[in-house]
């Protein structure tokens, strides 16, 4: 089965916080509320990584959360995509020099889509998910 055949209907996303400040997290929830309503495209927040197609990672990955992020990553069934939400997950952001960081998210798990911003607007989070869909289509064409 090709990757996008498994994912071409709807994307279910799972959100994992690896030490972020709550800013991105409330924007992710704001993105699923009536004003933006991405559920009309089938984008839905789910409660367990085992149901998810896309993992949204927020936060700079603290040492204590590194193992947990890896566990969530391995619990998510293939094919899967990883999206980083927020500047601190992309590059460390304001916490770049902290002694508790296991590096930005792409040092821990492979990342497909980056959504920068501190925090990004709900529109850009939804745009990120759409970009992920496009990326899957391109993979299928090849």
């Amino acid at each position: 089965m090709s990757i996008s055949k498994a994912l071409n209907k709807s994307l279910w996303v799972y959100h994992v916080n690896t030490g972020s400040c709550n800013g991105c997290d409330i924007e992710i929830v704001a993105a699923i509320t009536p004003r933006y309503d991405p559920e009309r495209f089938g984008i839905k927040l789910v409660g367990t990584p085992r149901h998810a197609d896309v993992i949204l990672v927020t936060g700079p990955v603290t040492n204590k959360m590194k193992d947990k992020l890896l566990r969530v990553y391995h619990q998510t069934p293939d094919p899967k995509l990883v999206m980083v939400i927020g500047a601190c997950g992309v590059s460390g952001g304001p916490f770049y020099e902290s002694y508790t960081l296991s590096g930005p998210v792409d040092d821990v798990v492979p990342v497909d889509v980056y959504v920068p911003g501190c925090p990004p607007r709900p529109e850009s989070i939804i745009f990120g998910v759409v970009t992920a869909l496009k990326k899957l289509e391109e993979i299928q064409k090849k």
């Binding site: 030490g19 709550n22 936060g59 603290t62 204590k64 959360m65 304001p94 916490f95 508790t100």
Partner: peptide, 27 residues
Amino acid sequence: HNHRGLEWMATRRNAVQTLYVSERICG
């Protein structure tokens, strides 16, 4: 699990830079 070492970071930045770190204690 959310320990990011903010208070330590403040000792390496100036007061105005730390103001923006203080905003990011909690969004």
